[in-house]
Write a protein that binds this DNA or RNA. Structure first.
Length: 605
RNA sequence: GGGGACGUAGUUCAGUUGGUUAGAACGCUGCCCUGUCACGGCAGAGGCCGCGGGUUCGAGUCCCGUCGUCCCCGCCA
């Protein structure tokens, strides 16, 4: 038997959403459905704030007007689900609520149906201060009733739609690729799915649809995109979830510029949904330039670039400071920090983590006593104002003076300085104010970083690794160095970067089987090994592969930035914790011995 | 894998140097209240101080371990 305290929906149909009613609707008869946000019981007069996705509206129940209805309203509690039939009344001037979009009107209830009751929730969607993450994730359905979450999820939907529209308008086809696919040992750890039919064999969930989208180019689909879930079994961060969504695209016969245009167009469309009018084209910068000026491959352009101030010093100066004259002397400038105490300088030193011999000089006053000319020149070169914080990062004398070692030492100086720059910028963000949002396009400093190195040297393994992935094309003019000087080979890989965050990464791919073999060779991969890992793909390359290239961008990060959120969890309906647990459904869980047996799996504990 | 922060009422938090009966606010329950909108007033219920062990005459407080959440490093082609 159903609970007879509750009313049935019957044929009642909703006429309006709660939050859309305005003064012009006065006199209209409406049927609303929603949740009780708050009830204010004044005795013979009861106010109910009814909430749905669109907002709140005040319902009025007057004992004098309808005692039976009033009796019913007395028993209503927070988060009950109601249907209300009533008329829209323009409020008296004295009772308007300027804080509410619907504050000029209220609903005089004529009928009230309690469609469902609710236990007192562990926290209320109407509360300003939100509870801890654990509770929010366990009771995600309640958390998502909060207006902030509703608007984040709605924003996400609108952004996805805008991107789909932008891409399909440009002739891209949205094509699905498998979730159950083949494990490739490169890159991140795979999530595995055991096969029942082939005990001991596993599918892998895709880290990205990389090879499938390249195959689609070989198939002649020309322009592909997909807003697609990707899976990586790596440790989480505030901006990393084990499953996340990429805007993945690939095109045939592209130049880098064509890819950039497409991405810029859909980012303009996406940001328009967030109320921001971007002005493409975005700035471009090579990887080398990014490292020299920002000490990182994802520069935050909201703060001034670094300066190589080596020229400010004579060789004697540098020797006296026991710095290597062949290494850069990087000036890091953070605006408007003002005078620092001794203690504060010492605290800042803790933020500096030097890589291979990089040294910090943070006391410019003391330096000035010994080298007044150099410091004056330094201030000039770095355009430092009196109240700016200025520090130097330079290289100590290097033992190994080979060109390769010196190149590495120089990069260590730049990247140590770059990391310190970011740490200081974070610490003094209140003072320099560069991270404050003005609500304009200037808040979002996009750039393209190009010409990434093709290979990175793995010291532990003693071999070269693909910096992007092994299907990335080298620069044509660097083909000759593939085997002689792999470290100097530039790739046609590119990143799109926003305010120090990598939003996406892509490349022009290798379409020729001979070049692909060469790359595998440079990576120290034997023909057999390459065949066993990527055989199907190498074979496909032999059947008329067009030049192609593409990119993938993190949708979650884009939404997070436009929502002004601090964590990806704020823009993902059902996220996982830092330990990759879903607290609502309580996953992962052990499975029954019968299930394991069927899969041919035994678990060691 | 490593480092850090946190864990006390349904929730957010306070809790002194280790010392009687562990507090506040919000929420909840009941009563009162016709213009509230974070309604107001009165009364009340509500505690495995994350868990386990240790030190002590005595532990929310000190020590060790463990679990959970968050942040960072490693990791994430």
């Amino acid at each position: 038997m159903p609970d007879n305290q509750l009313d049935l929906l019957g044929n009642l149909q909703r006429s309006h959403m709660c939050g859309v009613l305005r003064a012009k609707d006065a006199g209209a008869r409406v049927t609303l459905m929603g949740w009780v946000n708050r009830r204010r019981d004044l005795g013979n007069l009861i106010f109910i704030d009814l909430r749905d996705r669109s907002g709140l509206v005040q319902i009025v129940v007057d004992n004098e007007a309808d005692p039976a209805l009033h009796k019913k309203a007395e028993n209503v509690r927070s988060e009950y689900v109601l249907a209300v039939v009533g008329s829209v009344k323009r409020r008296d001037a004295a009772t308007e609520n300027k804080n509410l979009p619907t504050g000029e009107i209220e609903i005089i209830a004529e009928e009230l149906r309690v469609l469902n009751d609710a236990k007192t929730p562990p926290f209320s969607p109407s509360e300003q201060a939100i509870g801890n993450e654990e509770l929010r994730l366990k009771y995600r359905y309640i958390d998502m009733r909060r207006p902030e979450m509703q608007s984040n999820i709605e924003l996400r939907s609108r952004i996805s739609l805008a991107i789909r529209k932008s891409l399909t308008d440009r002739g891209f086809l949205e094509i699905e690729t498998p979730f159950m696919t083949r494990s490739t040992p490169e890159g991140a750890r795979d999530y595995l799915v055991p096969s029942r039919v082939y005990p001991g064999s596993f599918y892998a969930l895709p880290q990205s649809p990389q090879l499938f989208k390249q195959i689609l180019m070989i198939s002649g689909f020309d322009k592909y995109f997909q807003i697609v879930r990707c899976f990586r079994d790596e440790d989480l961060r505030a901006d990393r979830q084990p499953e996340f969504t990429q805007i993945d695209l690939e095109m045939s016969f592209p130049t880098q510029d064509r890819v950039f245009e497409v991405v810029e167009a859909f980012l303009v469309a996406a940001f328009r949904e967030g109320g921001i009018e971007l002005k493409p084209p975005f700035l471009r910068m090579t990887y080398d330039e990014a490292i020299c000026k920002y000490g990182i491959d994802k520069p935050d352009l909201r703060l001034p670039e670094m300066t190589d101030a080596r020229k400010a010093f004579t060789e004697e100066n540098l020797n006296a400071l026991s710095l290597d004259p062949l290494l850069p002397v990087v000036a890091v400038r953070i605006p408007k920090v003002g005078e620092l105490s001794r203690k504060e300088r010492d605290d800042n030193k803790q933020l500096f983590s030097p890589k291979s011999g990089a040294k910090l000089i943070d006391d410019l006053k003391r330096l000035e006593k010994s080298f007044p000319e150099a410091v004056s020149k330094l201030r000039e070169l770095s355009k430092a104002e009196a109240e700016d914080l200025l520090v130097l990062v330079a290289g100590g004398p290097a033992n190994d003076r080979s060109p390769i070692a010196m190149r590495k030492a120089a990069e260590a100086v730049y990247t140590s300085a770059g990391a310190f720059r970011v740490a200081l910028a974070q610490k003094y963000k209140e003072k320099h104010g560069a991270f404050r949002k003005a609500g304009t396009a200037d808040d979002y400093r996009f750039l393209w970083v190009t010409d990434f190195p093709m290979f990175e040297y793995d010291d532990k393994e003693g071999r070269w690794n693909a910096a992007h992935h092994p299907f990335t094309s080298p620069h044509e003019e660097d083909f000759g160095k593939l085997l002689s000087d792999p470290g100097a080979v530039r790739s046609l890989a590119y990143d799109v970067v926003l305010n120090g965050t990598e939003l996406g990464s892509g490349s022009i791919r290798i379409h020729r089987q001979d070049i692909q073999q060469l790359i595998f060779h440079a990576l120290g991969m034997s023909v057999e090994e390459a065949r066993s890992r990527f055989g199907f793909f190498l074979e496909a390359l032999e059947y008329g592969t067009p030049p192609h290239g593409g990119i993938a961008l993190g949708l979650d990060r884009i939404v997070m930035i436009l929502a002004g959120a601090e964590s990806l969890r704020e823009v993902i309906p059902f996220p996982k914790t830092a330990k990759a647990v879903d607290l609502m459904v309580d996953a992962p869980t052990p499975v029954s011995p019968a299930q394991l047996k069927e899969l041919g799996i035994s678990v060691k504990t």
